[in-house]
């Protein structure tokens, strides 16, 4: 029995302990939970020390070497490392009620500093760059996603028209023949829409992808207006926006579920291959 097998068995048993939670809370799960929480908390304590405190405070202050080179704290004086070090120490004043208020200073500097430093990059990456990417011509350009966009729009015409005729116009209540006729009519309209859009896209008359992008973007922006009542034009745009959001979330949901299934497969593979050698 090799050491590898022992540790693989420990990992496999802990995996089974965690999966036992699927049945209900039980002592095996509690054991695994407390073990992983405790081990990870201790592990991160060490990580914090060696990744942050040691290279940023201890080595610069005591002029120790890191990787064969003397540490220069950002190319400036060694004593500058004392400033964040002292601010960090001030956090511990919370253990002394009489001076606990001092602990708010480093927190204020930390939160305020990050918020202030974040404004410019966020404005650039999440606003200006996105605006530039969204400013696309709606016509006169080849549409690389024309086939998929037009097919999706043709299908959408079919679905919406079918729903409108069968449900809103109560055709479904008038018999099977009428209903089939309505569905066929919707299918013809959907296919016709697809053909027309394809022809227009091919000639560069419209770029349906860019039109969808701009309409979806403006609709989504309208949804996130908080200081105006969602009524009239704004209400209509916001409704379009929430549809786009939900379509996006649906796609993201499906995509992410697939990746989670692959995680499960990986774990089952560990149990059956690495541990039991069945595969």
């Amino acid at each position: 029995m090799t050491l590898t097998f022992i540790w693989t068995t420990v990992g496999a048993l802990l995996t089974l302990c965690v999966y036992s939670f699927l049945y209900k809370d039980n002592p095996f799960y509690k054991f695994a939970e407390h073990l992983v929480v405790g081990v990870s908390a201790g592990y991160y304590l060490v990580i914090y020390y060696f990744n942050f405190i040691d290279p940023n405070v201890v080595r610069p202050v005591f002029q120790l070497e890191l990787g064969g080179e003397a540490v220069a704290f950002g190319g400036t004086e060694w004593w500058m490392a004392l400033i964040p070090g002292l601010l960090g120490l001030l956090l511990y004043t919370r253990f002394f009620p009489k001076i606990a208020w001092v602990g708010r200073w480093p927190l204020g500097i930390y939160v305020g500093g990050y918020a202030g430093l974040g404004i410019s990059p966020v404005m650039q990456a999440r606003v200006i760059d996105q605006m530039q990417a969204a400013s696309s011509p709606l016509a006169g350009v080849p549409d690389p996603f024309a086939a998929a966009t037009n097919a999706a729009l043709g299908f959408a015409i079919f679905v919406v028209l079918t729903y409108f005729l069968l449900v809103k116009r109560h055709i479904v209540a008038r018999g099977i023949a009428m209903s089939i006729g309505a569905v066929v009519l919707s299918a013809v309209a959907g296919y016709g829409g697809y053909v027309v859009l394809s022809a227009l896209s091919a000639q560069g008359v419209v770029s349906m992808t860019n039109i969808l992008l701009v309409v979806g973007l403006l609709g989504t922006l309208a949804y996130f207006f908080f200081s105006m009542r969602h009524a009239g034009l704004l209400g209509g745009l916001a409704r379009i926006g929430i549809i786009f959001l939900m379509v996006g979330f649906g796609a993201s949901f499906g995509y992410t579920v697939m990746s989670r299934i692959s995680l499960l497969i990986g774990r089952v593979s560990f149990l059956l291959t690495d541990w039991l050698h069945l595969i």
Binding site: A134, S135, A139, G140, V214, L217, L221, F225, F226
Partner: peptide, 24 residues
């Protein structure tokens, strides 16, 4: 923030119109 969003929407409409006119 809503004011900024309004300005963003207006800017996107203008830039899209200009880009389309330049494209055709």
């Amino acid at each position: 923030q809503d004011t900024l969003k309004m300005l963003i929407a207006i800017t996107i409409i203008i830039t899209t119109v200009v880009a389309t006119l330049a494209s055709v």
